[in-house]
């Protein structure tokens, strides 16, 4: 067991070092394609969490619970697309982070986006979306651990969820737009892209506030009941 774990650590460390090396080589010799560089950077950002999750021998329950929450996020995105101003994806991912910890939130955010893009479309934006929603789950989990948000502070939680969307999810996805547009149109200032993305992000944030306000207390209550019942 010890030997295998050590071997994995070595392999994963080698992977990350290799990724960084490839990045440096690209930056030095490529035509400084910003989109490729940025995307590789984002993937490098996801690697440590994935590796950490792979390295510890996870319990079956942990894996299944993350899958269940990701599937719920995806299904609610698809099933309630008709309900206006109700975009539950970010909300449910944040609730996952709050209930099962930052790592679980990050992974469920990544998986949800990856799989729901099979239904919509995979594109150059996929890694960025995965990272953005992963961060949303991660930050929500951290804040919950610090006791800043919880199911008792319904309004505060909802508003902080909205702030997370405006501060993290929106800008990360806008950055991907910026890199794509930068290649396409020549001189685009980043501020123009971030400003033009702001209305969309504001709508998304408002939808997340509504979702969290409605869903957070009942869902967390249900999850806590399950936690007590099965001693998780």
């Amino acid at each position: 067991m010890q030997g295998k774990s050590l071997k994995r650590t070595v392999v994963y460390t080698a992977m990350i070092v290799l990724a960084v090396l490839v990045l440096i080589i690209f930056w030095k010799f490529g035509n400084r394609n910003h989109y490729v560089f940025g995307t590789l950077l984002v993937i490098c950002g996801m690697l440590p969490v994935i590796c950490g999750f792979e390295k510890k021998r996870s319990q079956a329950r942990e894996i299944v619970l993350i899958s269940v929450m990701s599937a719920l996020a995806i299904v609610s995105r698809m099933a309630f697309a008709i309900v206006p101003h109700f975009k539950p994806m970010a909300g449910i991912i944040m609730i996952t982070g709050m209930a099962f910890g930052p790592t679980a939130g990050f992974i469920s955010g990544m998986i949800s986006l990856l799989i729901s893009n099979f239904a919509f479309a995979q594109g150059p934006w996929t890694p960025w979306q995965m990272f953005a929603f992963g961060i949303a789950g991660f930050v929500a989990g951290l804040l919950y651990d610090k006791g800043i948000i919880n199911e008792k502070k319904r309004i505060v939680t909802a508003i902080i969820g909205g702030i997370i969307v405006v501060l993290f999810v929106g800008p990360i996805m806008d950055t991907s737009t910026f890199f794509l547009a930068d290649g396409m149109m020549g001189d685009v200032t980043p501020w123009a892209i971030y400003l033009s993305g702001l209305p969309v992000n504001a709508v998304h944030a408002a939808a997340t506030v509504v979702t969290l306000f409605l869903l957070c207390p009942p869902m967390l209550e249900r999850i806590n009941r399950i936690k007590v019942k099965y001693e998780i």
Partner: peptide, 10 residues
């Protein structure tokens, strides 16, 4: 494993 489970759950 998570990927394949989610694909079944959806």
């Amino acid at each position: 494993l998570i990927l394949s489970m989610v694909l079944r759950f959806v």
